[in-house]
């Protein structure tokens, strides 16, 4: 509550105190522009982070529960081995369901590689069985042993081989996005520190006059800090708004399949960009305050 009051007092400010620092065009524009650009980039990084997170969860979740049994056997044994494998699967603990894919479904799977009109039945295509696990999952090693005994041509593919690198890639992408947000914040702090230093240096005479009349360092610093914080907040609001609109107009994930079309916010995630200007203002506050107190400490 006390902190909230402090923030409110800081934002409402003191009109006459605000006027002691002269308006500085160049640093004002630099701060506004830098904040807007950084907020814009941060919104994209945030969207990327969320999209990567969703993708990782989706891959991790969906693929973790699905497995495939592939049966490669001579044509005359195919049916028997398929049935044997299905029986094994039906009696295996941890498997919710198992079914052999129809010829049409297998054709659809091959269509991207061989075209629509491939006579699947004329090709030595293995029979695929889709296996859905329960939440508890099954014992892969045990199942492989039982399958090899009952259906020698059956090979269990629990997707681990290619699921792991995909999930890792998505996790890395999410980490990269989070790092981008941190780097953007750091870059914003650096730019605003430079702008604050420039403003303080160009206002050495103002600082001298304020000290002469009894201003404490905190008062002088606040005059600069408040100005830079509010400018950064304004710039970041603009950048956030433009960024959010740009993401809003990205193609929808529903229309096409693919990661890039999934970049964006979903549901309550649309409130998350609102955090960007607040973080921007907080970064500006801390950067300017640190720079101001350091410069004031160095001035005699």
């Amino acid at each position: 509550m006390k902190q909230l009051r402090k923030i409110r007092d800081f934002l409402s400010g003191d009109a006459s105190a605000d006027r002691v620092v002269p308006p500085s065009g160049q640093t004002a524009h630099l701060t506004l522009f830098a904040s807007a650009v950084m907020a814009f980039l941060a919104v994209f990084a945030l969207a990327l982070s969320l999209a990567a997170g969703r993708l990782a969860d989706k891959w991790s979740d969906e693929l973790a529960r699905a497995s495939t049994v592939r049966i490669s056997a001579p044509e005359d044994q195919m049916q028997a081995q398929t049935q044997a494998a299905l029986r094994v699967l039906e009696t295996t603990e941890g498997i919710a369901s198992a079914r052999a894919l129809t010829a049409q479904e297998q054709q659809a799977l091959l269509a991207p590689w061989f075209g629509q009109n491939v006579p699947v039945e004329a090709l030595p295509v293995p029979q695929l069985i889709e296996v859905i696990e329960t939440d508890a999952g099954y014992d892969g090693a045990g199942l492989r042993l039982r399958l090899s005994a009952e259906a020698p041509g059956a090979v269990l593919d629990d997707h681990t081989r290619w699921r792991r690198p995909l999930v890792q890639a998505a996790e890395r992408l999410r980490l990269l996005a989070v790092m981008s947000i941190l780097l953007i914040s750091g870059a914003m702090a650096a730019i605003i520190t430079l702008a604050a230093n420039a403003a303080l240096a160009s206002n050495a005479q103002v600082i001298g006059v304020l000290r002469l009349v009894g201003a404490e360092d905190r008062y002088i610093a606040n005059a600069f800090v408040r100005r830079f914080t509010l400018r950064s907040l304004a710039g970041a609001l603009v950048g956030m708004g433009v960024g959010a609109i740009a993401i809003l107009f990205l193609p929808s994930a529903a229309t096409e399949i693919g990661f890039l079309t999934g970049l964006g916010f979903a549901g309550a995630e649309w409130f998350l960009p609102l955090v960007v200007p607040l973080v921007g203002a907080a970064v500006a506050y801390l950067a300017t305050r640190r720079a101001s107190l350091r410069v004031l400490g160095a001035l005699t």
Partner: peptide
Amino acid sequence: QFLDHLPLYENVALP
């Protein structure tokens, strides 16, 4: 040593 962007009365009232 005045603040040149402020009118006289504000400079005098600065303390």
